[in-house]
Nucleic acid binder design. Structure first.
Ligand code: NAD
Ligand code: NAD
Lengths: 225, 225
DNA sequence: CTCGGTTTGTTCTCGCGTTCACAAACTCCT
DNA sequence: AGGAGTTTGTGAACGCGAGAACAAACCGAG
């Protein structure tokens, strides 16, 4: 046991053992549920309450939280604000994350106007578009700038996260440029598979895939009726 | 073998054995990759090629396709258009799916303007909003109508799929109304947990969760450096 | 017709995630 | 102080999905 200590501590001084991906994906949901409870004046909550608010099984919730540490009190529950802070710290939303959005069309404008960014620690530092006609525009109080400014902006603001909202054909090029100037996390809305180096994280949001999954189940319901 | 035939055929006359959820979620990706290949003039492709285009492992691809049936030819590969049709049929995108969008703000307008809907068999039959000021507007060639018209529209067009793009506070009410008038599949963009009956499918798209997941990994990268 | 080369469809194994169930730990009341 | 009632944290069982590996099936050449 004692000799294993180095292994546990290797990754980082403070906590940071490896949390399962499935759990990481749920932590933001718990965070939101805790914020809601806190706003309603709930200072303490049980795993049962919190699980209900988050829409998950209470056993799963407790197991997820156990990866972070022991922040609850048996027989009592969790202190809402304390747990909220611990999860926020673990995810990293206690700090400020600068973000660039590339492709300020229908979707890019909606994203720029989305207030849920700022309130969770993400700050849009630039809007970029390749179309010169758009460079006149101001969206959500931010100037739309030429895509060529990417390198400078990323350097000046130490941007690590980029959002792609261009047409599918341009997405790979944009991603390559992002990677080249040091961005290591990409959120991709274009319906295409991006090829990036291993150390770069890509998450994709694909609306039409979601609809097609719904259609599949809808079809099955109709068939069995 | 022979006696098992009834079991295979029980669920439905045409195919429709139960496909794993993980596979269902990937079928739309394969569909898109096949469309791309087909447009490039590729009439036949191996599992290796298709897997590369879809960004998955070739063994996983073959396993996924095996749930649909045996549509390939050993030693040759898959006929691009034939496989594409089979997947489209299995998902249900060979038919037309009427869709309503509720909440025509920043995001709702972007969705209404999204061409990827129509091209995959989804037809926006109505845009609904509670704000009377918006009822003057025309978005993407479609009139914005009062939310109260929901029941009539769902009845007239046999709508099964609804999209929610309202603020979080309104989302549960909108979902309740949708369920009450017969909608059985909901795509929810509001950052809230929806309570619906079991037979109703809900999928949620949550941008800020995606960003938070990226932030978590970004933080870990920074910590280990 | 046979044989070598190719690619599919499937079997098997392994690891991850979910869920159950319960001991440990805490509060409150008597 | 002690016991009843609550709730957490976790060990263990289970099921599903990922990937490796291989036999079966197909093509084409000779
Ligand atoms: N609109 C939606 O609701 C929606 C939903 C899901 C997915 N998507 C996807 O999101 C992407 C954007 O959709 P949209 O409706 O906003 O499209 P859009 O055409 O309205 O906007 C695309 C923008 O990207 C810019 N652009 C093109 N090439 C570029 C480049 N190389 N560098 C920088 N900017 C470039 C264009 O000038 C334009 O402003 C598309 O891939 C689309 O498939 C959109
Ligand atoms: N804008 C984005 O990029 C983005 C991204 C992710 C998630 N979201 C979420 O999507 C939702 C919509 O975002 P938005 O930026 O479009 O907001 P928005 O305020 O621009 O639009 C909301 C629209 O919903 C309408 N509405 C309100 N209550 C309604 C009701 N009961 N019935 C029908 N319509 C109603 C409003 O009139 C308004 O037009 C929000 O929940 C937001 O958190 C938005």
């Amino acid at each position: 046991m004692e000799t294993r200590h180095a292994v546990t501590a290797r990754t980082s001084p403070e906590s940071a053992r490896d949390i399962p991906e499935a759990t990481v994906a749920r932590l933001p949901i718990y965070l939101r549920a805790l914020t809601t409870l806190s706003e309603q004046g709930t200072s303490t909550c049980s795993s049962e309450e919190l699980a209900a608010a988050a829409g998950v099984n209470s056993a799963k919730l407790r197991k997820d939280l156990s990866y972070l540490g022991s922040y609850g009190t048996r027989g009592v529950g969790y202190d809402t604000d304390y747990l909220r802070y611990q999860i926020a710290r673990e995810i990293g939303v206690t700090q400020d994350w600068p973000v660039v959005i590339v492709g300020i069309g229908n979707l890019g404008q909606a994203l720029a106007n989305y207030s849920g960014f700022r309130s969770r620690g993400f700050r849009v530092v630039a809007l970029l578009d390749a179309d010169p006609a758009r460079h006149e525009e101001v969206v959500a109080g931010i100037d739309v700038r030429p895509f060529d400014h990417l390198e400078q902006i990323v350097r000046d603001h130490a941007v690590a996260i980029g959002v792609i909202a261009t047409p599918a054909l341009a997405a790979q090029d944009v991603a390559d440029r992002m990677v080249a100037c040091g961005i290591t996390s990409i959120l991709n809305f274009a319906p295409t598979v991006l090829n990036v180096p291993d150390q770069v994280d890509v998450r994709k949001v694909d609306l039409s895939i979601e609809l097609q999954i719904l259609a599949y189940h809808e079809q099955r319901k109709a068939a069995s009726a």
